[in-house]
Design a protein around this nucleic acid. Structure first.
Lengths: 118, 118
DNA sequence: TGGTCACATAACAGAATACGATATTCCTGT
DNA sequence: ACAGGAATATCGTATTCTGTTATGTGACCA
């Protein structure tokens, strides 16, 4: 069980969605959410509804496209897939993330002066 | 020169400010901003004014405190320092960041299927 | 037939950074 | 002595995103 729910930072959800679609192929919103939670080792728990706003954004920008179909359970579901533009964007996002992680690492590593403490 | 300006994600600026104060001791807003840019290797470029909203937030929460003084150039400046509560918070923030970076790494590493591509 | 789960849409609240305008004070060049 | 610019701070607004909650629909099962 996850220690505590891990909140997300602005933009990280969209990247994970793109990555998930790139890695899994076409998938419906519900499935994408479950997959992200699973891959994260259940550290991330997406509130029901949270993923859809992301999907709307991404589709609106032309990075994913949707098509109605039926899930494995015969239920009506919208299947999303990543577009070529989406792949390009994903590449940029990953590069951005690595840069940010690098910079944060550098900043957080700047040594603290030896203070008495609390 | 930086390739391109690196935008920040929600919350990362506040953590960097706390860390900077913990590492440098009391410092004024302008100095904190310059320091963050420097430590980041000039990848981060803080727009003038951006840092102050962060300082207001942190002070409002009791994580930093301010005192008017004079900068090395004899100009009037507000010197901020981290409080005990701020140090606790910084620890939590760093832990959070590491968790998020870890999870993002896991998600972004999920293999893409071999697709023709674009 | 009634319930629950899979799956989707919509709308608002909260929070933080980007950006631009403005004010003050000190320092430097002429 | 004066103009201009750098150091330093404040404020207000636009934008964007996640959290959250309410609501709807169709399948499956007891």
């Amino acid at each position: 069980m996850p220690e505590s729910k891990l909140g997300l930072l602005q933009g990280t959800l969209d990247v994970m969605v793109l990555q998930t679609l790139a890695a899994m192929g076409p998938q419906h919103g519900y499935g994408i959410a479950r997959r992200i939670e699973q891959v994260s080792g259940d550290e991330i728990l997406l509130n029901q509804g949270t993923i859809y706003a992301s999907l709307v954004r991404l589709q609106h920008r032309g990075w994913i496209r949707a098509k109605w179909g039926a899930s494995e359970n015969k239920r009506k579901a919208k299947f999303y897939s990543i577009t070529p533009k989406g792949r390009v964007r994903l590449g940029q996002d990953v590069a951005y993330w690595q840069r940010l992680a690098d910079v944060m690492g550098r900043v957080l590593a700047s040594r603290a002066r030896e203070n008495g403490n609390a």
